[in-house]
Simulated scan of single mutants.
Amino acid sequence: MSPRYRNGTNQAGTVIAIVADVMAFILGLWILMYLLDANRANDLVQFVHNAANWLAGWSHDLFTFDEAWVRVVAGYGLAAVVYLFVGHAIAHRIHRH
């Protein structure tokens, strides 16, 4: 394998890991904003909430706990953990090849 090809592979793995980190950061930020009762009329809060809803569309209503804050932490937190785990697993596999 040529060094040039290998370097491109390493960059692809790094990009995948960074994207996974950013996705998990957005989800974690929304959880924090929710728990701290951030002003939902604020543009930044709305942006983070919309992005988190899109990223966790498959998991944000997965659980039916009685407390709303537990549903938010579990649903959005699960998505963050899955993105981190899968993204870094893929990045690690790309780096190995």
Rank of each mutant, 00 (worst) to 15 (best):
A20M: 06
W30Y: 08
I16P: 00
I26M: 14
I16T: 03
W30M: 08
Y76T: 06
A17T: 10
W69A: 15
Y5R: 15
G77M: 10
Y5C: 06
H95K: 00
A56W: 12
Y34Q: 05
G87R: 03
D43R: 08
M1A: 10
R4E: 04
V82D: 02
I90A: 08
H92D: 00
R93G: 00
D61K: 13
W69C: 01
H92E: 00
A24Q: 01
L27G: 15
T64P: 10
A52Q: 11
V48P: 12
D21C: 10
V86T: 10
P3Y: 09
G87T: 00
V72A: 11
M1R: 06
V82R: 13
Y76N: 09
A56K: 11
Q11W: 06
A41N: 10
M1D: 08
L78P: 01
M33S: 00
L36I: 05
A20R: 07
V48Y: 10
H95V: 00
Y34H: 15
T64F: 15
T64N: 14
R40M: 07
R40P: 00
V86Q: 06
A51R: 12
V22T: 07
Y34I: 05
V73E: 09
N53V: 04
G28T: 05
L62G: 07
W30K: 05
A56G: 10
I16L: 02
